[in-house]
Amino acid sequence: MSLFEARSVTKRFGGLTALHGVDFALERGIASIIGPNGAGKTTLFNIFTGLYAADDGSVTFRGQPLLGLRPDQITALGICRTFQNIRLFSNMTAIENVLVGMNSRIALGLWDVLSHSRSFRRTESDLAARAIGLLDRVGLQANANAVARNLPYGDRRRLELARALAAEPALLLLDEPTAGMTQGEAGTLMRLLRGLVADLGLAIILIEHNMRVVMEVSDRVTVLDHGEKIAEGSPREVQENVRVIEAYLGTRGAGPRGARRA
């Protein structure tokens, strides 16, 4: 039984088939999903996390079917994500953002909150300590009390990562985490991800346009084009795959990064 397995996932928006019978499986480590704009990568994440309902197919996590579950239930099972166009709680502070991410791990009831019970006080101080630890991990400890909106772009991406980690996921879905970062920043982030995989045994699915990052960090790469999986394998295999080269170069006449929307 795989940690995570998706079978023939199909999603239509009106007449457009955004995903067409996509299979995907992950056991451990980092798997990347690449593909030109509009290939259906983000849509796949939205289905995995319960934000969209799939029209067909199945998704299981540790053997449990996910389709039909609510996003918060899926998060509670141990899957959390970041967004392509950063979606922080922008008027809350960095640490508050991380604390919200812990929501599904808090076992307190209304009565604990109202009575300030012992377990409430203990939990609150534990949460705060853990949140600081996470901010530390992504290099934002100095900005714990900064309002999310005021953080520089790269910091906001890293804060989103800390917020997703706060849910204690076993599987992390990252939608273009290095977008807008310099090559140097991207490298630091990838080392961080590798560290997470090594220390916490985390599995990661990465959507990336930055090919250098993808080739460096991925254990496996899946290529989507027009909602279909056209290739899968080790970074090297994929790089040499004819259909992939066609998808990126042949029809569009530009390299992977040239294919990006401006």
Partner: peptide
Amino acid sequence: RAWEAIREDELAARAMG
């Protein structure tokens, strides 16, 4: 905090559990 998060961004709040 959950209420605040819902007010800020309902979709992100749901995805964060």
